[in-house]
């Protein structure tokens, strides 16, 4: 058996290969590596913690089902977020955003990473954080997809193009639009002016 530490250093592709061969602990490693990113991606897409929990699980179960057909030339993260993106789209189609918001809170404050450590969000000011969240939620779906895949999932533009099934140039244009909208929401904050210096 592969020691846990060694497994954690393995590439996604190597772990998927091991999972295909029946090593379930490789799947656990992949799950732990990506569960926060997938959960937050779905959460920011749908705005509902309940839906995010369910859909994020479905994303990983989609990986389980796709594992026998996994193509090793495709990055694992592309497969994972392509499944996530598809499930989010299906959910958006099935449930209008208003109903999604009624399904429950965005996410409990206690579940936020860094909660209880004295920090209020990553930039320290609740108003700024709310403004960022609101600005992202208000992005058109195409821009939100690209922004979240870049900022939350940390995918390179080439992978985002694969996941969203558009050209890399189109992806970058969507990203520029998203950043411009976000800038408009942030530019009145002192933190923004300080960051400009």
């Amino acid at each position: 058996m592969t020691p846990t530490g060694e497994r954690e250093e393995m590439s996604d592709q190597a772990l998927m290969l091991r999972y295909q061969r029946g090593d379930r602990s490789a799947f656990v490693t992949l799950l732990r590596r990506y569960q926060v990113a997938v959960y937050n991606f779905v959460l920011r897409q749908l705005g509902s913690a309940l839906s995010a929990d369910e859909i994020a699980r479905e994303v990983f179960l989609g990986v389980v089902r796709e594992a026998p057909r996994f193509d090793y030339e495709t990055p694992f993260s592309t497969l994972l977020f392509a499944i996530a993106q598809q499930l989010v789209r299906d959910e958006r189609t099935r449930t209008p955003s208003r109903e999604l918001l009624q399904q429950g809170p965005s996410a409990p404050e206690s579940s936020r990473i860094g909660a209880g450590s004295g920090s209020l969000g990553l930039r320290g000011e609740p108003a700024l954080e709310d403004s960022i969240v609101s600005a992202v939620e208000a992005l058109p779906d195409e821009q939100k997809d690209v922004f979240l895949l870049r900022e939350v999932a940390d995918l390179p533009f080439s992978e985002i193009a694969t996941v969203t099934r558009q050209s890399e140039t189109a992806v970058k244009i969507q990203m520029q639009h998203a950043l411009r909208r976000l800038r408009l929401a942030l530019q009145d904050f002192d933190e923004y002016r300080r960051a400009l210096r």
């Binding site: 569960q35 926060v36 937050n40 929990d53 990473i113 990553l122 930039r123 969240v133 900022e151 939350v152």
Partner: peptide, 15 residues
């Protein structure tokens, strides 16, 4: 750069 630096969404852990 400033937008990206500030525009970080708070991250949540799954249940």
């Amino acid at each position: 750069r400033a937008t990206r630096q500030l525009g970080v969404l708070p991250a949540h852990v799954p249940p």
